[in-house]
Amino acid sequence: AGLEKQLAIELKVKQGAENMIQTYSNGSTKDRKLLLTAQQMLQDSKTKIDIIRMQLRRALQ
Rank of each mutant, 00 (worst) to 15 (best):
L7E: 13
I21N: 13
L7A: 07
I9F: 08
L56A: 07
M41W: 13
L42Y: 06
L56Q: 07
A17I: 12
S45M: 15
T29R: 08
K33V: 00
K33H: 03
A59M: 11
K48I: 01
Q55Y: 12
Q39G: 01
Q22E: 12
Q43K: 14
E18L: 09
N19L: 10
G2C: 07
T47K: 13
E4N: 09
L35H: 01
K30V: 00
K12N: 02
L3V: 06
M41Q: 09
L11Y: 09
G27I: 08
A17V: 09
G16Y: 14
G27M: 02
E18C: 02
E10P: 07
K33Q: 06
A1L: 00
L7Y: 09
K30I: 07
K46V: 06
D44K: 15
L35D: 00
G2H: 14
E4D: 09
K12Y: 03
L35Q: 05
R32D: 06
K30Q: 02
A59K: 14
I49G: 00
A8K: 13
R57S: 07
L3H: 10
Q55T: 08
Q6C: 01
L7C: 04
G27S: 12
G16C: 07
L3T: 10
L3E: 14
A1S: 13
G27C: 06
L56Y: 00
K14P: 02
I9A: 13
M20A: 09
K5A: 06
Q55D: 07
M41F: 11
M20Y: 03
I21D: 14
S45N: 00
R32K: 15
T47C: 06
I49S: 01
A8F: 03
Q43V: 06
A1V: 08
G2N: 15
Q39N: 03
Q61W: 15
A38W: 08
D31K: 15
L42M: 05
K12R: 10
I52P: 01
K14S: 10
Q40G: 03
S28K: 13
I21F: 05
Q22P: 07
K46P: 00
E4G: 09
S25G: 10
L11V: 11
G16P: 09
K5T: 11
Q40P: 01
G16F: 10
M41S: 02
M54S: 14
N19S: 09
M41Y: 01
S28R: 10
M41H: 06
G2K: 13
A17S: 08
Q40E: 03
L60S: 12
R53D: 00
S45I: 15
G2A: 04
K12D: 05
A8M: 06
I51R: 15
K14H: 07
D44R: 15
Q61V: 03
M20K: 10
L34Q: 03
V13D: 02
M20C: 01
I9G: 14
L3N: 12
L36Q: 12
I9P: 13
L34S: 04
K48A: 02
K46I: 05
D50I: 00
Q40I: 01
D50L: 01
Q61G: 09
V13Q: 13
Q55W: 15
Q15V: 06
D50K: 15
A8Y: 00
D31Y: 13
R32Q: 06
M54K: 15
A8N: 07
E18S: 06
L56G: 09
D31T: 15
D50Y: 01
Q22L: 04
R32H: 10
K14Q: 05
I21K: 10
L60W: 12
K14W: 00
S25D: 11
E4Y: 08
Q39H: 04
A1T: 13
K30R: 08
A59F: 12
M41A: 08
Q6I: 11
E18A: 05
T23A: 11
E18Y: 05
L34W: 14
L35M: 06
L42R: 03
K33Y: 01
Q61D: 01
Y24C: 08
G2P: 10
S45D: 00
G2S: 11
N19K: 13
V13W: 01
L3M: 09
Q43T: 08
I52G: 02
Q22I: 06
R58W: 03
A1C: 11
K30P: 02
D50H: 14
T37W: 15
Q61S: 14
M20V: 05
L34N: 03
L35T: 01
T37K: 15
R53L: 04
T47F: 00
K12P: 03
Q22K: 07
G27H: 06
K5R: 07
I9T: 14
M20Q: 07
G16R: 15
I49Q: 00
A59T: 05
L35S: 03
G27V: 06
L42V: 06
A8R: 09
Q43L: 05
I49M: 01
L7K: 13
A17H: 05
T47I: 09
D50P: 00
Q55V: 04
Y24L: 13
N26F: 03
S45P: 00
Q43W: 07
K14V: 04
I52R: 01
T23R: 14
E10Y: 05
L36G: 10
D31W: 15
R57F: 03
S28L: 07
I9L: 12
